[in-house]
Design a protein around this nucleic acid. Structure first.
Lengths: 193, 193
DNA sequence: ATATATGCGGAGGGTTACTCCGTTTAACAA
DNA sequence: TTGTTAAACGGAGTAACCCTCCGCATATAT
């Protein structure tokens, strides 16, 4: 039953171009706060028909998710780079702050997420995986170096951060978020002594 | 220019009854996960016409917000009660856990919030105020009693909690959330010594 | 050059949010 | 009680939107 589809042909170049274009337009729109933008409009701005949009992304949520995932991947990719440039604890702190910065720059994440209606479960599950991989590595390194203790789940850090970012309404939210980073890390260091 | 509207008449009883009925039905639906339920259906279940729904709540978001606000008020009201029943730090811990429980019981909050599309700003701003009042009192009492230090902003606690709850996807989220409560409080106590 | 799988466009069906206005009814005065 | 009136009601109608379907176009491979 392991029938692997051997695609006979190379994917068509125009298809990929259109797909990327749609993602770019959608990201721009979401970032600009136009979360309720009609899909027809996105298709139009990307210079394609509505049918094309729907072939690439079967529904609205799929499009949002795709944009979101692309950003997440960029964020996850930064982890190994930081790990190579800084000592463990500092790499961890830097990455968490980067996370905050991403949202500060309105890079899609939070607003788009709020737009998702129902089945967020799947989305979170997947995206959680990729981000968790990133932070797990950073935390593991910091624990190995003896700088922080292992009694805090890396996921907790993520969750807290993600949450703070969602409530990015108040004026001092950014300061608040970074302070939270310090608090959580400080706590881990304290109990490592 | 301070023309106070002196309402000539007492508000009509059927109006208030219908309004409360709509809220009740909407809350039940949202809690049951029917976030995308058509407004016509809500009106029907409440035994009123669609026009009536729209007079009480000018649009979908207004209805969601109203349900949400009602729950928040209940949560805020619990703070003084807890403060009277427990010593300061325990009251604080208890209230934060209650917060988590509310979401665990799917009491509207998180799912409905995710459904809100655009201008969440105003909503958060207002709701932040009422919850902030609640937690401020609890923290102030704990600081006054010398049990925790004042170097942590009460708002941070709220933000972190709210965030964790939004990511209520993974299996152990509830444990995770309550662990976060302990971590935050422990950290505050440590620096109070 | 030919064949064909892959991708494209956009009209159209079905659903939903919201408006408008003629009708009903609760509150108050006589 | 009865009459008056402002407040509230109901639901048909409108506009906008999501998504499907299918005949046409084009990139890839031979």
């Amino acid at each position: 039953m392991t029938d692997e589809k051997k695609p006979r042909r190379r994917p068509r170049s125009d298809g990929q171009r259109n797909r990327e274009n749609l993602l770019k337009v959608a990201k721009a729109a979401f970032t600009a706060g136009e979360i309720d933008i009609p899909l027809d409009e996105i298709a139009h701005r990307a210079g394609v028909g509505i049918g094309t949009l729907y072939r690439h992304f079967p529904n609205r949520d799929a499009l949002i998710e795709a944009v979101y995932r692309a950003e997440l991947d960029r964020l996850a990719d930064a982890a190994p780079v930081l790990a190579a440039q800084h000592p463990p604890v500092e790499a961890l702190r830097a990455w968490m702050r980067l996370f905050v910065d991403y949202i500060a720059a309105k890079l899609v994440i939070a607003p788009a997420l709020n737009g998702l209606a129902g089945g967020t479960g799947t989305l979170y599950a997947q995206s959680g995986t990729v981000l968790q991989g990133a932070i797990d590595g950073l935390v593991a390194a910091a624990v190995a170096s003896g700088d922080i203790s292992a009694d805090i789940e890396p996921v907790d850090l993520l969750r807290a951060l993600a949450g703070v970012s969602n409530y990015a309404a108040g004026p001092g939210w950014e300061t608040s978020a970074k302070r939270l980073v310090d608090i959580l890390i400080a706590r881990s260091q304290a109990s490592a002594s």
